[in-house]
């Protein structure tokens, strides 16, 4: 699925097109995505500006933003875009590209949460709450996070103490080996 031609140096736009089948150049910057974005206030750059950076070839600005990590994937932008540009999928692609490039990301805790979550899936095939909390706390060093809520959740059995291992967990491991972006 390469868009590369002989006269064309591969750009981040090509990578985005490969991952999402979306062309960022169709965006005409109406700003409807940013207007409806529930997490816009917490981002360093508005979502439409990230698309603009890509259009202008200012790739570093896009992948270094906190915006791509704070996008909650609510799909309000994707739903409302008058050009049918799937902005949420575009944000997914930029995160994947940022990880591949080894960029130092601004929202470290968010990435650590995702990694801790995926580690449980890789090891057991299904989510394992106690393992997730343990690995998240160990990697962030935020050992006191949610100490108030956790005992109640444990008592109610909402945090599994033991993991549930699926029978096909080896097949899950192989899926991760073939696709995981480290």
């Amino acid at each position: 699925m390469s868009h590369q031609t002989t006269n064309h140096t591969r750009t981040m736009t090509d990578d985005i097109k490969d991952i999402t089948s979306q062309n960022p150049d169709i965006c005409y910057q109406c700003g409807k995505c940013s207007a409806g974005c529930p997490v816009r206030n917490y981002m360093d750059e508005a979502p439409n500006l990230i698309v603009r950076y890509i259009q202008l070839g200012l790739y570093d600005k896009a992948v270094n933003s906190s915006t791509i990590w704070l996008c909650a994937g609510c799909l309000t932008c994707t739903t409302r875009c008058p050009k049918n540009f799937e902005l949420a999928a575009f944000m997914d692609a930029l995160r994947e590209i940022a990880l591949k490039k080894g960029i130092k990301i601004k929202e470290k805790a968010i990435l650590k949460f995702h990694k801790a979550f995926l580690k449980q899936i890789k090891n057991h095939g299904r989510s394992y709450e106690l393992g997730l909390i343990r690995d998240y706390k160990l990697t962030t060093g935020d050992l006191m996070a949610d100490v108030d809520a956790a005992p109640d959740m444990l008592l109610k059995g909402k945090i599994g103490i033991f993991p549930h291992n699926i029978k096909g967990k080896e097949s899950i491991k192989r899926i991760f080996e073939k696709t995981e972006v480290k």
Partner: peptide, 11 residues
């Protein structure tokens, strides 16, 4: 879940 699609499309 969320963690899958925000880190790797193919995963």
């Amino acid at each position: 879940a969320t963690s899958g699609h925000v880190t790797s499309h193919k995963l």
